[in-house]
């Protein structure tokens, strides 16, 4: 199985260790992993801001770079969701092939590979951050609003890690307030949402907040540091790849 690794732009620039962990984890599972070096961004920041036309050339480029792989795997639920749900709409005239093969790494491990064990050890208490697009677009966990059987693929995977203690905050899938351009256009509400979310994560007594989106974690970390809080933040793939 040939995997194309998509490292979202802000992960590339700010959290390269998340990309490294994703790469190592996929390699350790015996997969052939390619990384098209001309990749940049999926276009979501422009689309959500209202400039889908500026996302179009990026969507086209993405499709061209990744269409030859069996699956495209991204350590970033929101970006994977944008590719899968919005690229087909943006490119409806020309059509696209990579979007439907694009997955977030959590769903890839859980639903495609169906991994049942991992060598990872992480003897810490972690609070799971169920990010909105992971929950409501990709279905990584059951949305709290809906009457459906309860599940959480992030927690399922974390349970394979030795020594870990997993908790969820109150209001387990309420938005943290990042929202891409929302955080710069509505800084007051965005910050307040982040402060509330952070307080609920801290309230669990966890040492780390972990989730499938470094963007939410970056937002919460910025607020935590400004407020002098010491809780740590780690992408879920870094925990799953611990020790590799």
């Amino acid at each position: 199985m040939r995997i194309g690794l998509f490292v979202p732009c802000y992960v590339d620039a700010l959290f390269p260790e998340v990309g490294v962990a994703a790469y190592k984890l996929l390699k350790s599972l015996g997969l052939e992993v390619g990384y098209p070096e001309k990749q940049t961004c999926c276009g979501q920041p422009m689309g959500n801001a209202g400039f889908e036309t500026k996302a179009l050339p990026l969507a086209r480029k993405y499709d061209e770079l990744f269409s030859g792989y069996d699956y495209v795997v991204a350590p970033g639920a929101s970006c994977a969701a944008y590719v899968r749900h919005f690229h087909p709409e943006i490119m409806k005239e020309s059509g696209c092939t990579a979007a439907e093969k694009t997955t977030d790494i959590v769903e890839f491990l859980h639903d495609i590979l169906k991994i049942k064990s991992l060598p990872a050890v992480f003897p810490h208490k972690v609070s799971v951050h169920n990010s909105c697009h992971g929950v409501r677009e990709l279905g990584l966990s059951s949305p709290s609003e809906r009457n459906v059987p309860r599940f959480n693929k992030i927690i399922d995977l974390l349970k394979l890690v030795e020594g870990i203690e997993i908790v969820e905050p109150e209001r387990r899938d309420e938005c943290c307030g990042f929202g891409g351009m929302f955080s710069v256009e509505e800084p007051a509400v965005s910050t307040r949402m982040g402060q509330d979310k952070l307080r609920r994560h801290i309230g669990t007594g966890a040492e780390y907040v972990t989730g499938p989106d470094s963007s939410c974690l970056m937002h919460l970390e910025g607020i935590a540091r400004k407020g002098g809080e010491s809780i740590k933040f780690i992408h879920v793939v870094q925990i799953l790849a611990a020790g590799l």
Binding site: D12, P16, E37, E185, P187, E221, G222, I223, K226
Partner: peptide, 28 residues
């Protein structure tokens, strides 16, 4: 800087993922 309203600024790492890949990711 609207980001600075509620956040401590993030620090950029020494090297991006692109750069690590270029140098040979298997050695990281």
């Amino acid at each position: 800087n609207a980001w600075g309203y509620g956040h401590r600024m993030m620090e950029f790492p020494k090297e991006s993922f692109h750069s690590l890949w270029k140098k040979g990711i298997d050695n990281v």
